[in-house]
């Protein structure tokens, strides 16, 4: 009889992440002749994003997708994709992934998880409520921070980090409680924040990655043939995901500019400021990351 696996995703059904894993689920079902039936639950219906990793660890769900960098409190290595300006294009992000994959797989295995593949998000850019031609223009603006790293980024930019939960973001932007934020553009589009934050700076700060992982006991219980089939499909889904993210990067820009957002390339002074912040935050990260993190970053930099 068929093995039914629940597959929670934090993103709504029409988001490319949920679309990608639905495609993955269909392929797996087909390849295994229905023996492995993955049921996608979008929009955090089964478990909210933050809970998905733990739910898969404990077999409440058997497979899941979530951004690992949300769990960097557990291990700093999970946050390696979100170190500012370390890997800021799709190519570099893919290289960083190749370098870090073995270490991440090992770390996940210790937590009873099998890492399958990753899907990148479009590069993170900065949204402002006004035009920013030099770093001074951003001084004192209220910046929505969602973790320690983004709060630090705001401080280094001379902005005031403000903590706003996702559910309250549109009210906060509408009332000027938030004057700037960093995002891939997707949330800005989904929450329709373009009226309030009409200036986008293509900073390409980093690429957030979503990861697909399976409960390890479930994984080990599959026969080798099925495992190989799933791995093959993962590879295809990963390539599809990267392609989708690249297309989305362009679509988002055109969609946002249709809604009246001006898309800027950061002026030279701003670019220099970003570089300075990047260097500083990379140093700070390396200090915390220990030998393993330092080795991985060195290995990655050597390939540049």
């Amino acid at each position: 009889h068929a093995d039914v696996w629940d597959f929670p995703s934090p993103q709504p059904a029409n988001n490319y992440i949920s679309e990608n894993i639905s495609w993955f689920a269909d392929q797996v079902r087909e390849a295994t002749g229905g023996e492995l039936d993955l049921r996608v639950h979008p929009s955090g219906t089964l478990f909210p994003g933050d809970q998905i990793k733990r739910a898969v660890q404990r077999d409440q769900a058997q497979i899941g997708v979530h951004v690992l960098s949300a769990h960097q409190n557990e291990s700093i290595l999970f946050g390696i994709d979100s170190v500012p300006f370390l890997a800021n294009s799709f190519e570099e992000s893919a290289q960083l992934w190749e370098v870090t994959k073995p270490a991440l797989t090992e770390l996940m295995a210790e937590q009873n998880l099998q890492l399958l593949y990753h899907i990148p998000w479009p590069p993170q850019g900065l949204f402002f409520d006004r035009e920013i031609s030099s770093p001074e223009d951003a001084d004192g603006l209220k910046f929505r921070a969602y973790n320690t790293a983004t709060a630090r980024f705001a401080e280094l930019m001379g902005m005031t980090p403000t903590l706003i939960e996702e559910a309250e973001i549109s009210q906060a932007a509408a009332t000027g409680m938030v004057q700037s934020l960093i995002s891939s553009g997707d949330p800005v589009y989904n929450h329709q924040l373009w009226d309030y934050l009409p200036h986008f700076y293509d900073a390409q700060a980093w690429l957030v990655l979503s990861h697909v992982f399976v409960n390890k006991e479930r994984w080990d219980a599959l026969d080798e043939e099925t495992q190989q089939a799933v791995l093959d499909i993962s590879l295809q889904a990963e390539q599809r995901g990267e392609q989708q993210a690249k297309e989305l990067t362009e679509t988002l820009k055109s969609q946002l500019s249709e809604k009246g957002v001006s898309i800027h390339q950061p002026a030279e002074k701003l670019r220099e400021e970003f570089d300075r912040i990047g260097e500083e935050m990379q140093e700070e990260w390396l200090e915390k990351a220990g030998d393993q993190g330092r080795q991985l970053v060195e290995e990655y930099r050597a390939q540049q």
């Binding site: 933050d50 949300a70 769990h71 409190n73 557990e74 320690t148 903590l163």
Partner: peptide, 9 residues
């Protein structure tokens, strides 16, 4: 040693 994924850590 589970830690919260929020900023409180």
């Amino acid at each position: 040693g589970d830690v919260s994924s929020g900023q409180d850590a």
